[in-house]
């Protein structure tokens, strides 16, 4: 057995392939396609304090090599997650990370407290949500605001704390440092890129238009993600989990090259539902074929 493990100290992965939040639900649908226990870890759908119905209207827009979504964080709420989903994840031995989101700092603090109470081993914080008390600017776009938020979560939660950064900023470096200084354990990058889909239909001179403003994901954002991961690693010492448009072995190796310790598969799960497990196999085969000792050795050579 080739050693593909990633040890973050507080959190351990058998292999470096995770599934991104929002693309794997609560991990109760993909059993049909693969053994989910073979995934490094699954990141749950973003959970808020209260149940949310999500956005009205059109939620999806396919682009060239990508997908715009505006789901609006439809989710069952933290209590329902704890009562209905948590036991199953634990019983099946699925390694998971809880993704949390909120509208106010207080929301996040309460979610952190519940995560601590329930002994959830790792949480990923979505900071791309509008901060209602700060004129709906996203938490993750202002370094002071982000520092305060992460500090308050850190006070309440002692497990492995990952902050998922948004790419919709000018200086990702400042935000990465804010997260590091506030005491987080890890950064995941990137969340979706803001995008707009425009669909036009004509009936003579009558125009029927549909505008879908949301988060762009998929293959087309990979260069943005790689650049962000590289820039974060240049200033921060925290480990980084890279994501954004990864769909094959080579994509994964590119992220390792710029400093990612692990990666997440997002949109590609929809196209290819067994990719997470297949990639782990391919990675092991590649390591053997090329003659590397293990994943650590491969990463060292990639970063030389």
């Amino acid at each position: 057995m080739i050693d593909l493990s990633v040890d973050f100290g507080k959190f351990y992965l058998e292999n470096p392939i995770l599934t991104a939040s929002g693309t794997y639900g609560y991990c109760d649908e993909f059993d049909a396609f693969l053994d989910v226990r073979n995934i490094g870890a699954i990141v749950t759908k973003g959970i808020t304090l209260e149940e949310r119905p999500g956005n009205e209207g059109k939620r999806l827009f396919e682009t060239s090599s990508g997908l715009i979504n505006r789901i609006g964080l439809e989710n069952i709420g933290i209590e329902a997650f704890v009562n209905r989903k948590l036991a199953r994840l634990r019983k099946l031995g699925i390694n998971f990370i809880l993704n949390i989101a909120g509208k106010t700092e207080e929301d996040y603090v309460q979610l952190a407290e519940i995560s601590q109470r329930e002994e959830i081993p790792a949480i990923e914080v979505n900071v791309s949500c509008p901060n209602v008390k700060a004129g709906c600017l996203e938490f993750g776009t202002d370094e002071k605001c982000l520092y305060d938020l992460v500090s308050r979560i850190r006070e309440k939660y002692k497990g492995f704390l990952i902050i998922k950064l948004t790419p919709n900023v000018t200086n990702i470096e400042d935000l990465a440092l804010a997260v590091q200084n506030a005491g987080a354990d890890c950064i995941s990058a990137i969340n979706t890129v803001k995008g707009l889909g425009v669909e036009l239909n004509f009936s003579g001179t009558k125009v029927v238009k549909s505008l879908v403003q949301g988060g762009l994901s998929g293959k087309c954002i990979k260069p943005v993600a790689l650049s962000m991961v590289k820039r974060i690693k240049e200033v921060a010492n925290l480990p980084v989990i890279g994501l954004g448009g990864i769909s094959n072995l080579n994509d994964m190796l590119e992220f390792f090259t710029v400093g990612a310790e692990a990666i997440q598969i997002g949109t590609e799960n929809f196209t290819n539902p067994s990719i997470a497990v297949n990639l782990a196999k391919e990675l092991a085969e590649f390591i053997v074929k090329q003659g590397f000792r293990d994943l650590k050795h491969l990463k060292e050579e990639l970063r030389k």
Binding site: G22, T23, E29, R59, L60, N269, F270, P273
Partner: peptide, 8 residues
């Protein structure tokens, strides 16, 4: 997108 109920 997913066809299996996860992406909403």
């Amino acid at each position: 997108a997913c066809g299996i109920g996860v992406c909403r």
